[in-house]
Design a binder for these strands. Structure first.
Lengths: 223, 223
DNA sequence: CTATAACGGAGCGATTTGCTCCGCAACGAT
DNA sequence: ATCGTTGCGGAGCAAATCGCTCCGTTATAG
C-alpha cells in the first residue's frame, strides 16, 4: 500500500486480447453488418464476453474506439501520401491504403454511435490533409481537374466495402478469397485510371479473375 | 356455379399492394441490411402484415421474388445494351441501368435464400448476355482489352450499393439525397472512363459535390 | 505458495423475430 | 339494400436474440 504495488499477473494476455477484439469487431461488422453482436465479436476474437466488457464499458464504446482508430489510420495514410515524392503516387498510396484498411466496414454503424470530440477533431484534420493531397496532385497536373476532394472521399467509401468478399467469407469459401481480393484490386486500378489526366492507362494488375468467382456471386450460376 | 365466376372485389388494390411491397422490400433492405424485418417492409409499403403473408408464403419467398426480378432486370438491360447501335453506349447503358436499379441492395441476403431453378436459369442467361456485350465492346476497340466480363460483373456489384446514400436515408436527410445521387453518378463516370481504351476522358457530369455532403459522412465533421 | 488481476460464459430481463389468426371492410352481382 | 366473396389490417404468440452482469476459475508476478 505504501509504495510497492504488484504487477498485473496477466497483463500481456490482456493486451493481446484487446488487439484481437478490435480486429474481430472489424471482421464481424463486415460479415454481419449493423447487427453484429458482442457475443459474435468476442467469439471471433477467441475471448469471453466478460473480457470484452472489462475493457469497454459498452458496445458503443468499442465501436467508438474502432471509429477513432479508423480515423487515425486515415490521417496517417494521408501524411504518408504527402511525404511521397511523387504527387500521384502519394494520392494512390493514400486511397489504396484506406480502401484496404476497410474504412467501408464501419458504414453500418455510422449513425448509431455518438461522435466524441476527439473523433470530430481527427475527422477535421483528415479533411484538411485530404484537401492538401488532392490540391497537390491537381497542381502537378496528374489528377483530372474536375475531380474534387469530396469525390475522392466518396470513392474511398464506395470502394471500402466489398460485397463479394463479405459474401465469400460468410459462406466460408476461404479458397476463393485470394482470387476475390485480386479481382477487387483490379477494380481499384480501373478507378485510379479514371482519376488520371489524359487517360494514361496502366495495365490492370495480375491475371484476369476466373469464372469460378463469377459463379459465386449473390446468385449462384447454373448447376 | 356452372359458368359465370365472380370477379375479385378488391383485386386492383391487391396488385398495387404487391408492387408497393416489392419496392418497400428493396428500400428496407438497403436501409437496414440483412436484418430487414417483414414488419418494417409491410409498414413502409403502407400495408398490413397479413397482406404480405397472403401474397408470399414466407419472408424467403418474398426475397426470392425480389431476386428474380433483379435478374430479369439485368437481362433486359443487357438486351437493350446489345440493341444499341454503338457498342460503347450499349455497355455503358447496361452498367448504369444495373447500378441505378440497385442490384447491390440484394447483397446482404445473398447466402440466406435458396436458389430456385428459374433463378439459376436467368442467371446463366445473364452471364451469356454480359459476355456478348463485353466481347462486342472489346472487338470494337472501345473497351480496354484487359477488362473481362467478370471484372464488369464485379464492378456492377461494387457500385450497386451506396453506403453514403443509405446512411443519409437512415438519418432522414432527404434534402441531401439528390446531391448524393449526383455525386455517385460522378463516381460511375470515373469508373467508366477507367474502362475505356486510350483514356478518352469525358468531363464528369454535373457540378462538383459540395462540402455539405462531405460533413455528413459516417463520421460527422467538426462542429 | 500466495495474492491478485484477468479470465470465460451461464443466465437475466428486455426486445425483436417470423408468422398465424380472425374480425372487419370494400366491392360485384342480384 | 342485401348478400357472398375476397382481400384487408394488426393484435398476439412462441421462439430467438439482444446487451450486459455476476461470479467461480485460472494463470502469473513476487
Amino acid at each position: 500500500m505504501t509504495g510497492s504495488r504488484r504487477r498485473a499477473p496477466r497483463q500481456a494476455e490482456a493486451e493481446r486480447n484487446d488487439r484481437a477484439l478490435l480486429q474481430a469487431a472489424r471482421d464481424v461488422l463486415a460479415l454481419e453488418g449493423s447487427h453484429a453482436s458482442v457475443a459474435a465479436i468476442a467469439a471471433r476474437a477467441g475471448v469471453g464476453i466478460g473480457s470484452l466488457y472489462r475493457r469497454y464499458r459498452s458496445k458503443e464504446e468499442l465501436f467508438q474506439r474502432l471509429s477513432l482508430l479508423s480515423l487515425e489510420h486515415w490521417n496517417e495514410a494521408a501524411e504518408r501520401g504527402l511525404a511521397a515524392a511523387d504527387p500521384w503516387d502519394g494520392l494512390v498510396g493514400f486511397i489504396t491504403s484506406c480502401v484496404e484498411f476497410g474504412q467501408g466496414t464501419l458504414a453500418p454503424i455510422a449513425g448509431t454511435i455518438e461522435i466524441t470530440e476527439e473523433m470530430a477533431a481527427r475527422s477535421a484534420q483528415g479533411d484538411a490533409l485530404l484537401a492538401t493531397l488532392v490540391a497537390r496532385a491537381r497542381a502537378a497536373g496528374v489528377l483530372r481537374p474536375d475531380v474534387t476532394a469530396v469525390d475522392v472521399s466518396l470513392l474511398i467509401e464506395q470502394l471500402g466495402g466489398s460485397p463479394v468478399l463479405d459474401q465469400l467469407r460468410r459462406q466460408g469459401r476461404d479458397d476463393l478469397i485470394d482470387a476475390a481480393t485480386r479481382a477487387r484490386n483490379r477494380l481499384i486500378a480501373i478507378c485510379l485510371d479514371g482519376l488520371r489526366t489524359g487517360g494514361a492507362v496502366r495495365p490492370l494488375p495480375g491475371p484476369a479473375p476466373t469464372d469460378e468467382l463469377f459463379d459465386e456471386r449473390w446468385v449462384r450460376g447454373p448447376s
